[in-house]
Design a protein around this nucleic acid. Sequence first.
DNA 1: TGCAGGATACTGCACTCTGCAGTATCCTGC
DNA 2: GCAGGATACTGCAGAGTGCAGTATCCTGCA
Lengths: 221, 221
Amino acid sequence: MRDLSSTSFGILGLLAVRPWSAYELSKQVKRSLAYYWPRAERGIYDEPKKLVAHGLATATTEANGDRTRTVYTITRRGRAALRHWLREPSAPPRFESEAILRMTFAENGTKDDLLAAIRSVREHADVLRTRAEAIIRGYAEGRGPFPQRVHINALTGKFNISYVSMLERWAEWAEELVMTQWTDTRSPEGFPGAMALFGAMLDELTASATDPMSDRMDVRR
Amino acid sequence: MRDLSSTSFGILGLLAVRPWSAYELSKQVKRSLAYYWPRAERGIYDEPKKLVAHGLATATTEANGDRTRTVYTITRRGRAALRHWLREPSAPPRFESEAILRMTFAENGTKDDLLAAIRSVREHADVLRTRAEAIIRGYAEGRGPFPQRVHINALTGKFNISYVSMLERWAEWAEELVMTQWTDTRSPEGFPGAMALFGAMLDELTASATDPMSDRMDVRR
DNA sequence: TGCAGGATACTGCACTCTGCAGTATCCTGC
DNA sequence: GCAGGATACTGCAGAGTGCAGTATCCTGCA
């Protein structure tokens, strides 16, 4: 049982919603879980097999002409294992961005290199926003798949928007700042406003820590 | 040269700032890069060796009693390779959170399981906030290490705050919502406000897309 | 009727990275 | 004199990725 990963339980969670084939699972992971649990298609194909080996799912092979497809269904033991997993503590969140890594070493490159890195963050966020918007629009108009899960999707949907908006806002801010105020990447003289910014950030940090209202997340912004 | 990863170039970027030992590098990665390029200590020890093998760094072994430490220094070829890497396109950002994955399958568990997952996100964000605050305070008060990099650190520092604040705000919002409005995890009847939330999210999305001012990132707030 | 192109349905392989355990020395304070 | 934390690493099993490769099925169009 110890060779089941969080990814395995993610797949098990999808199987708790309905039966899926591995191909469908890989698409569904990309469509919905990818915002906070991104996994390559390749890995998804191995997971249901592990679940079957542990008795948490069963596989049924359907003939479709010369081609077969294997559909996986959760078992009673699978539901129990999922319930148990939900009680366990979670590893901390993790974010990675090659573009921001490159930005960190911008002093070794040109202003254009830096702007390209910042823009790539925004472009990626825009793609995610478009996808999220389509799904949220569907639910808002009552056309969402899995209407029985709408209460949970409201929480994850809100997270997805928060995440994407954060990336967009930061990237817009950084792009404009670099475009209008930076003359040189090499030294702080190329951007004289830097120290003032640290002061403002500190104010921001202490303000949100002491004044709870400034930090509230409204439904509308 | 193709067996150098982005992590290798991240280490090379640090070596462009000053020489470090592998131990120091692993601490520095945790202290500063971890917000957007988290890597296990284990891996950091292998990277400078690869850089030396490619002629991008040199190693000097210092005796310190019975124990030796190896200090790595960037070479001219190393600086050229870093410059070249900065011009390359970046992989998209990536976020993962086991807690939010668990939240996605909350229908299979209790309200307490769900609240624990949401709280763990906030607790992690609080730890990150405290660390970021110390570093930002240092720079704001002119005590930061690497004052020659203050202009770049303003950009990364602002990102770190945005990221941490996003996690905190979302987690606070979700925690309060679940605590005060959810009665049951199993079905949408346990949270009647779900559909209204989707409507609000859609408004939010279209508002920020059409009204550029609502999306600006102020220095304060 | 034929054929292109996209969707479906996977597998093999090399490689990166992680987490854990293990080894050992140095230094500071009590 | 000794505990405990910091310094300084290495080995290994396993998770996950990215790419290439192999096929079949289905739809639209010429």
